[in-house]
Design a protein around this nucleic acid. Structure first.
Length: 550
RNA sequence: GGCCUGUUGGUCAAGCGGUUAAGACACCGCCCUUUCACGGCGGAGACAUGGGUUCGAUUCCCGUACAGGUCACCA
């Protein structure tokens, strides 16, 4: 029996690895094209970090005329969740991230380098494992969980580095005959890589983001094929990214320390490794300590959170891009209405350490993004959101479509559009008072401000209605009339004038218009009152004002 | 604990041997001839620390502290 026989004994029915190498030839892409992939596990929860990675991948592929692949890493069947793949696909879709290749539903995929789901690639991994066994670069290991536990304990008490390596690797030098006997005996085993590494030696590596890093060589005989026949992450990564002809592996930097393992695997298979870009995770601060955004503790870690809050996905994307390349902000300032597709993302400009998630900044970006929307876009987006999350708002928009468009058009579409909506869940509160059936049927306690006296308020409003209110006025005339009203009642026409001689007046035009504003809307802060009046219309204005002084 | 990485205002960050150490968010003040939002102007606020190297270090080297990551038949 030789190693070839052993390989055949272990994997009798798999094809030769060269079959797959031919089946998935090098891609014919133009110089500099990047082949990248997002490779999540379907654990039923899409993390914002995954969207972050995808945004980066998708942009780079687009920028270079490359390929963006969605690969599902489902080799851990214990953690798998029903419809996990669809959940991921839907999340990407929401962010308008469209992979060129990869899974398109739970079972099917598109692209010539598939399957794109690791559980469907079992024989492929085995073919490469077989090659390693033939070349004596991998071997079966019969150690049980108990054996390994025992080994770890011994190592711990002996104060040596834990792990399956060197002399501790019990199955590493088993004789072929013994191996054959134990396999034929039906003993359980897994396949381990025979590491040629030496802990004393250093390897040099250049990461596209992190720069030059030195590591000690890996000397652990890591598991490559588990007892269920599926590969571990390390092995799957190497085989898949080789066969899918990935040029750049973009992944979280928690993988950085296993890089020596991966590099060694590539070398053992005689393959040139791809370039690596390890991105820093998005962090969160709690009790003074920084940590990764956690799916258990932080609602904002879940993609669903943004959907529920009604933060537009393009806003979240801009925020993510802003974390990725801080010059995005500058670019956006100079290209206010450009599509983010026109921004050129640079991997080497990415931050080396993790940024704290900043909700305030996200909402600020979101406000700006929404301010660029047309009223129709606001209507559609808000309506779509409401359909899922706010029945009442949906009804409000639906029952009054034409009117709602007018409301949403207030101070929108001009040079300096309003920026007061950061998320769709804010919207209802912002516009509800504009609807008569809601406003008039709600009991109001008007909280007036500087002018508080009931009689005075009555006088302001009734005088306005009798002598000065005329909706057909243009804005200047309309406002001049409010000034006239102020003057007649003993208030300064100009705020400045009042400030210079406060003793001469009861107040100023601002106080007077505030009274009208509050009577009209029930609130002290609103968009431009002239525009509001235009939208409300004469009848509504009169009803509202009269109601206020009743 | 070993290994790897990082540390510029409250946050995100430019900078890469000589700079008054950019900019954005947040904060404060003023202005924008009615509020708010927007916009404009201004303000406060930073190179973790100790040693080197150098004419000169935020920038380079070493140590310390602190932080993060990683040490599975999980990814």
């Amino acid at each position: 029996m030789d190693y070839k026989d052993l390989a055949n004994l272990i994997f009798p029915n798999v094809k030769d690895a060269s079959y797959y190498e031919e089946k998935y030839p090098e891609r014919k892409l133009k110089e500099g094209a990047m082949v990248v992939r997002f490779a999540p596990s379907p654990t039923g929860f899409v993390h914002i970090g995954g969207i972050y990675t995808s945004v980066i991948c998708s942009k780079l592929a687009k920028q270079t005329d490359g390929v963006f692949i969605l690969r599902i890493e489902d080799t851990d069947q214990k953690r798998e969740v029903e419809n996990g793949v669809v959940g991921i696909i839907d999340a990407l879709k929401k962010f308008n991230l469209n992979p060129d290749e990869g899974m398109i539903n739970e079972e099917d995929s598109k692209g010539a380098y598939g399957p794109y789901k690791q559980s469907q690639r079992k024989e492929i991994y085995q073919a490469f494992a077989k090659r390693l066994i033939e070349e004596k670069k991998a071997y079966p290991c019969f150690c049980t969980a108990e054996d390994l536990d025992e080994m770890r304990q011994k190592q711990e008490s002996a104060k040596v580095r834990p792990g399956y390596y060197g002399a501790w690797a019990a199955c590493r030098n088993l004789g072929l005959d013994e191996i054959e006997k134990r396999i034929k005996n039906g003993e359980e085993y897994i396949i381990r890589f025979r590491s040629p590494g030496n802990e004393e030696r250093k390897i040099k590596h250049h990461d596209v983001i992190k720069g030059n890093i030195d590591f000690p060589e890996n000397d652990q005989d890591i598991v490559i094929i588990k007892s269920d026949g599926l590969p571990t992450y390390h092995f799957a990564h190497v085989v898949d990214d080789y066969l899918m002809r990935t040029t750049h592996v973009i992944r979280g930097d928690e993988w950085l320390s296993s890089l020596p393992v991966h590099l060694q695997l590539f070398q053992a298979l005689g393959i040139k490794p791809p370039k690596y870009a390890h991105i820093a995770p998005i962090m969160k601060e709690e009790d003074g300590a920084k940590r990764k955004l956690s799916k258990r503790k932080d609602p904002e870690a879940a993609v669903e959170f943004y959907a529920k809050e009604g933060i537009p996905s393009d806003a979240a994307k801009e925020y993510l891009l802003n974390i990725a390349n801080s010059n995005f902000e500058m670019w956006r300032k100079q290209n206010k209405t450009a599509s983010i597709d026109d921004f050129e993302l640079q991997l080497n400009k990415m931050s080396i350490s993790g940024a704290l998630f900043d909700m305030v900044k996200l909402l600020d970006i979101s406000k700006t993004v929404i301010s660029r929307y047309s009223k129709e876009e606001v209507y559609d987006a808000a309506y779509t959101w409401a359909t899922e999350y706010d029945e009442d708002l949906k009804k409000l928009l639906e029952d009054n479509k034409e009117y709602s468009l007018k409301v949403l058009g207030i101070e929108r579409g001009n040079e300096k559009p309003r920026k007061d909506i950061a998320k769709w869940s804010d919207l209802k509160d912002n516009i509800e008072y504009m609807y008569d059936d809601r406003f008039l049927n709600k009991p109001h306690t008007y909280e007036y401000q500087n002018i508080n006296d009931k009689e005075e308020i009555k006088k302001v409003i009734s005088t306005y209605l009798e002598k000065y209110f005329d909706l057909s006025d243009d804005k200047q005339t309309w406002f001049d009339k409010i000034k006239d009203l102020s003057e007649e009642l003993g208030y300064a026409r100009e705020v400045k004038e009042y400030k210079q001689n406060p003793e001469k007046y009861k107040g100023h035009v601002g106080d007077v218009s505030t009274v009208i504003r509050i009577a009209l809307t029930g609130r002290a802060n609103t968009p431009d009152m002239y525009e509001i009046m235009k939208v409300l219309g004469e009848d509504s204005i009169k009803t509202r004002l009269e109601k206020a002084i009743k």
